[in-house]
Amino acid sequence: MDKAVNLIKLSVGTENVDDLAAWQATKRAQAPDGLPRHVTRMWPKRADEILSGGSIYWVIKGVIQCRQTVTRLDEYIGQDGIRRCAIVLDPKIVRTQTSLKRPFQGWRYLPLGDAPPDLPEGRASEEPLPVELNRALAEIGVL
């Protein structure tokens, strides 16, 4: 089995993890089988590694806050006729320890060793810290 690799992506326009979940619950954000998906212009060159247990880590308001396991990559042809990649995700959103991330375009590969750990099950439903406090703590290395 290939070594897995993750993806990291900005969740543009999302205020928090609940907003991400609400967006993914809309028909527009779902694959034909009802699973959430993110359609992107580029097809990952490391698809086999992503599909070997990789996740997509979501950056919300400049902070990695959660992840979802990538279940498959589907071809998606838009109304413009251009071939795109639909990254199909497990609907379970797993909250992670927060980690600051500067803005970037598109998605990037995130090695397993660089990914923030998942929060323990009991902490997954805790109210997140305010973004400004979270960012300040991450900047000084507390989070």
Rank of each mutant, 00 (worst) to 15 (best):
G78T: 10
K3M: 05
G34T: 05
Q97F: 15
I50C: 12
R83N: 14
E49F: 03
R95N: 05
E49A: 14
K92P: 14
P36C: 02
T26A: 02
Y109N: 00
P116S: 12
R28A: 03
K92R: 12
K27A: 08
D118V: 15
P111C: 00
E75F: 02
L20M: 08
A138T: 13
R28Q: 09
M42H: 12
V12P: 12
R108L: 14
Q105V: 14
T71L: 13
G54Q: 03
N16H: 08
W107F: 09
I82S: 10
E127W: 05
Y57N: 13
P117S: 06
S125Y: 13
C66A: 04
G81A: 04
S125W: 10
R135P: 06
A47D: 12
C85F: 10
I50F: 07
D114E: 10
P117C: 13
L112G: 03
L129H: 06
C66F: 08
D114T: 00
G78D: 10
L137M: 00
K3C: 05
E49Y: 04
L110I: 00
E75N: 02
I50N: 09
D2W: 13
A25E: 13
E49W: 04
Q30L: 12
I60Y: 01
A4L: 06
L20W: 05
L110A: 00
L129K: 14
W58S: 05
N6A: 04
R102V: 09
G81L: 10
L10G: 15
P117K: 05
T40F: 01
Y76V: 10
G62W: 12
V17R: 02
P44Q: 08
T71S: 07
I82L: 05
G78H: 06
L137D: 00
E75S: 06
V63N: 04
G53V: 14
G62Y: 07
L112E: 09
E75I: 10
P103M: 01
I87L: 12
G81E: 07
L35A: 11
R95K: 07
R84A: 08
P32W: 12
V17K: 02
G141P: 01
V88S: 03
D74S: 03
R28D: 05
E126Y: 11
L110S: 00
S52F: 08
V70T: 13
D118C: 07
V5G: 03
A31Y: 13
D74W: 04
I87R: 11
D19L: 05
L119Q: 00
D19Q: 04
K9V: 15
K3V: 04
R41G: 02
R41H: 11
T98P: 06
G81N: 06
K101D: 03
D80S: 05
D114P: 06
G113H: 14
G122M: 15
H38M: 15
